[in-house]
Amino acid sequence: MSNAPQTAPRTAEPTVALDTPFYKPQGNEVELFEHAYKHQLPMLIKGPTGCGKTRFINYMAARLGRPVYTVACHDDLTAADLVGRHLIGDSGTYWSDGPLTRAVREGAICYLDEVVEARKDTTVVLHPLTDDRRILPIERTGEILHAPPEFMLVVSYNPGYQNLLKGMKPSTRQRFVAARFDFPSAELEQEVIIGETGIDAMMAKRLVNLANSLRALKDHDLEEAASTRLLVYTATLILGGYAPLEACRAAMVEPLTDDVETTRALMEVVDIAFGN
């Protein structure tokens, strides 16, 4: 058994976008985000998977010129994973900032993706940061960080698929300005797909029609609606020269269901809506 730490010290690195990523606003979310940023309000974004939440954050960060620290939350995420921990070095231990602490120090945007996946006690560390105090007390070192005006906390989750238990703690939820995302309208979604992949307008239209057909099956035959992300995948495959029907199967039908019968039925729909 080795006594040395088995993993290298983890340091959080921010992502800084070099150029502004492609984003088509669905409504007034850009304006809302800018207002929240200006007034130092934390923001909560909810919406189904693959509708553009993460892209929106990255777009806004690039627009505002701030780096983003993204944390994908999971149920083993501890407060230490956010705030930081002691690590062992050659000459003893040293403190290493977590992504949240770094974002506070640097005045960056800290983005907690799928925040409901984290255990509720973990997210309580966010509380002093999300009210008017805007401080982050680091318990283990005794330090109290005051967030600069540029710091912004953004969390997101998908209100659909998590079970009842994994709702957000109401006392946490209440601390955010919230915006709901949904799949864009057909015309907008076509523009998104064209903008993202460069596919021709006719194909984009067919893909969006198909996606809207499949979305009608949510809750009845499918657990989740076909996302814009899947459409982009499909368009990418088609553009790369993959046969359209097979691209739909690989990037839209199979990812949506495991049931063979349903797959067959969905392919029938693809054939009708898309066919040759």
Partner: peptide
């Protein structure tokens, strides 16, 4: 039955 049902709903039929 299942296929037609899913198709009917996907094409906009009443669920």
């Amino acid at each position: 039955e299942l296929t037609v049902g899913i198709m009917f709903r996907a094409l906009g039929g009443d669920g």
